[in-house]
């Protein structure tokens, strides 16, 4: 149902946008486009199919465009060209009001540095999505408390984010996304700012939740281990282009090119 189809999406930052777009479409590389038009290519002809009910990992190094790409799905960033479908809806074609309704009801997001409102309590943060939608406070609080309990923060609902550790903050971020009750959850380097141990806990918790929830999760990471651990499917991004898409197994055993092979090599050696 809630599958996402990304079709030929380009994102150009700054400079002579149209010229850069033409150049990118004719297959000229990033550095040359920057030299000729002063524009930086964020995404270059990205097409992806994200099936519903799975954790789809988009992996790449910093600057590969992965955070830019995930922000196209809820249009925090507007594409320069291309289309993005959620089911039958073309997200790029939504007007402001429709876009807001889409964000309210269909998609939620977890951020790398949490993005919690420091002047609101854990509970108020967790129920933000519901309150924006107009859910009455009592009802929203009930749902919010349930999720706060599920992510293991019972008793902290009246604390402020500043009183919590990083891992706890991200649990609030997760509770906020899940309380919104959307089928689609975007997670932008959600666990990257956490300590290794807490990170592993959160990964396991996410997998465990997913066995009951079957949400469509788009998970961004720069960490191969994380991608292999939680991803049902992985797409690897380099310089704004998709280099390979496949299951963890396919990525490990049949790397599409040298770049992916180098990524995977360290891992294979470690497990040899």
């Amino acid at each position: 149902m809630s599958d996402i189809k990304i079709r030929n999406v380009y994102k150009i930052f700054g400079g002579k946008t149209q010229k850069a777009l033409e150049l990118a479409k004719s297959g000229i590389d990033k550095a040359e486009i920057l030299r000729q038009s002063g524009a930086s290519v964020g995404l270059n002809d990205v097409s992806l199919d994200i099936p519903s009910g799975e954790i789809f990992v988009i992996m790449g190094l910093s600057g590969s465009g992965k955070s830019t790409l995930v922000r196209h799905i809820n249009r925090l960033i507007e594409p320069t060209a291309g289309e993005i479908y959620h089911g039958e809806t073309n997200i790029v074609g939504l007007n402001r009001k429709e876009l807001r309704a889409f964000r309210m009801h269909k998609v939620s997001m977890v951020f790398q540095s949490f993005g919690l409102e420091p002047h609101r309590t854990v509970l108020q943060n967790a129920t933000y999505g519901l309150r924006v939608r107009g859910t009455p406070r009592e009802e929203a609080d009930k749902v919010g408390l349930d999720w706060i309990r599920t992510v293991g923060l019972e008793g902290y609902q009246h604390k402020y984010p500043a009183e919590l550790s990083g891992g706890m903050k991200q649990r609030v971020g997760l509770a906020r996304a899940l309380a919104a009750g959307t089928d689609l959850v975007l997670m932008d380097e959600a666990f990257s700012a956490l300590d290794p141990l807490i990170r592993a806990d959160m990964q396991d918790q996410l997998l465990q939740l997913q066995t009951n929830l079957h949400k469509t999760i788009v998970f961004i990471t720069h960490d191969l281990e994380e991608a292999l651990h939680i991803g049902n499917r992985i797409a690897i991004l380099k310089d704004g282009k998709v280099v390979q898409t496949g299951t963890p197994d396919e990525i490990l055993n049949h790397p599409a090119d040298d770049y992916v092979a180098r990524f995977v090599k360290g891992r294979n050696r470690a497990y040899a």
Binding site: N74, L76, R103, S113, G115, Y128
Partner: peptide
């Protein structure tokens, strides 16, 4: 920036974001 991005991502209207998030902060 990420706080504003977050409340935008959850469908907050510009007025709501201004008065309930940006102004208090």
């Amino acid at each position: 920036h990420e706080v504003v991005e977050a409340v935008t991502a959850f469908g907050g209207s510009p007025t709501r974001i201004l008065f309930k998030t940006e102004m208090p902060l």
